[in-house]
Design a protein around this nucleic acid. Structure first.
Lengths: 198, 198, 198, 198
DNA sequence: AATGAATGAGCCTTCATTCAT
DNA sequence: TATGAATGAAGGCTCATTCAT
């Protein structure tokens, strides 16, 4: 029959979380397609059957794993942006923000590739990706607004900013380009951001 | 398993190409994971068995399909860059280049998502992706060099440029953001490129 | 596993009955194989675990559900046959009996197909079926005997009668044959019954 | 790895037939629900995968198994009916027909219960059952017509006849009723049939 | 007596790859 | 060269039954 349970008791909640964390781990290590539900259950320390009490199907696990991933990425950014109430938005602040963005990506690097890949293969993951973009963009727009920064085409500028920050974070995680000096990439990004909202 | 054949006779060459083109078509339409080898063979008009004479395995087909894809993307850019011998690298030229880049992406949009996704899932596809980046970056560096344009951190600037152009092309193909004015995104990109190499 | 309980307290008895009635309902609606024990428990308003205090296993529920079903079918017939003490067994009485048989089948039509099917798949259900036959046959034989009707091969005649009545009831429930006039089928059955015991 | 495969010299048609016959055997022995596809394949001497080249799914096997079953039942009847061109339709002929019907049911007794059961559980099997009825009824109507036998309500009479013959065959296969003399049942059936079409 | 979370064996089906022809 | 029939391992999911509470 299969009613999906939203756990009420603390133990059930913890069990569901354990499954999500197991998914975060194994999806990150082996990829979504190379992981079977039995392995997730095993890593979570539960039976295969019980997984289907908490999740509709395998993809439902994935979506909740990715939700956790985005949360882990977004929270540090949000915290930092909230702390900027009285600071000036100068080069130093931007550099700090980039460091935080890069670090929170690095802390969750295992699932990073997987999430990007799946956002191009699966409609629902893609939607989560767009929601993340909106979340970040809104947070940034709010900071700019709080600091009375006004430029034309704000939406596009923020979106453009989002893109180059995301690119930067992605590259800094993997250092895939042997001949690229990433400090200089950060510097280029910082300058471009400054000129976008000067 | 037999030796992988590099076809010499014209008919064999054509047969191999037919398989690659069939892969391009069906991988684009249904995705790599949702396509089985039998279907590729069917679309190519050959038997399933013969596929394994020309390709080591399913992924080998994929890699050669993607190679063709990158060729289709790169050739128009290369042709345009070669034509710039005596032109000045002004805003108009950059805008033309962006239009060509966007168009060649649009002409191959079907496989676009798939290639990006797989480049994050598979080491070998990723390598092809990096090679494409190097190809494009080198071509651009050469043009800049031919026009005696000299800036510090050239490598990083070109790489940064590559990133924002790739982002732009990707977005323009899909227009996923309802509230974004893509003309303005093109304009922002152009300005940033100009300022990178002024 | 605990001892199977035959409930003594009125509440327990009612709980067991609720489970049987839930089984009657859902087995009739969805079929035995398409119903899981969790659903029966849910419809009965009890926990899945408690079901196994009252029933040995899923099939045990089925057997008791079917017992109830046969009771529901048989009772109206029995009542009618009991009322015939002083009546003559003419065509009119037979027609009344057929109407009652058909109606009691119709009132329980949901489980009808299921019971017939399972009687061909399961030894125990089949046995219940045979017991029902014996019950009906005996009741009929008793009526005939009470009315001093004597024919040779009484057992076979009653059995033959049982068969054609059962066939008739089954067909009248479902009207599966578009080209059959069921009034005429009833008439044919009546005549055959009359000639069996004239 | 490295198991030498025995050369397959049988044609595809024979292989498909082998699977159907394997289904006939194991469905008859263990029942449809208690048989898994692996076992059918094993009994047929093929791999599980190849089964799905010849059949859409497990139920497709079932339907073709049942089609074969009905054929096996019907052919002897048809042959006998065809041989009646110049014979009179007297009691002896009816008794012969009943013997043939009973025998062809007995020769296929293993699947008999299963087919009846599934005809009450599955729409498609039921349809096959109705088609069989139509086939038999038509054949009988044709014989009656060829012998210029005319009665009112022919359709219902033939249908009634079909029902009692089917009942008889079913009972004679299993002899489930200890106290029933089946010779007398045959005799009762014969008389009823004679009186239906006198 | 009662709960409902937990178990885990079992099933249908797919598909990359091989091999007899 | 070429065919396509054949292989068989693997995977997502269900559900009757049990057990800790």
């Amino acid at each position: 029959m299969g009613v999906i349970r939203e756990p009420q008791k603390i133990t059930s909640k913890e069990k569901k979380l354990k499954i999500i964390e197991a998914g975060l781990k194994v999806f990150g290590e082996k990829g979504y397609y190379n992981t079977n539900t039995a392995e997730i259950a095993k890593v979570a320390g539960v039976s295969t059957g019980i997984v289907y009490s908490y999740f509709k199907d395998k993809k439902d696990i994935l979506l909740q794993v990715i939700a956790l991933y985005f949360q882990n990425i977004f929270n540090p950014m949000q915290t930092f942006l909230n702390s900027l109430q009285n600071s000036e938005l100068n080069q130093s602040v931007i550099e700090q923000f980039l460091q935080i963005a890069i670090k929170s990506h690095q802390d969750n690097y295992a699932l990073h590739e997987e999430v990007i890949a799946l956002s191009h293969l699966d409609k629902d993951v893609h939607e989560q990706f767009l929601n993340f973009e909106i979340l970040v963009s809104s947070a940034i727009e709010k900071v700019l607004s709080d600091h009375h920064i006004k430029v034309d085409n704000m939406t596009e500028r923020v979106h453009f900013a989002y893109n180059i920050v995301e690119s930067l974070c992605h590259e800094c995680i993997y250092h895939k380009h042997a001949n690229i000096n990433y400090q200089k990439m950060i510097s280029l990004t910082t300058k471009t951001l400054l000129s976008l909202f000067n």
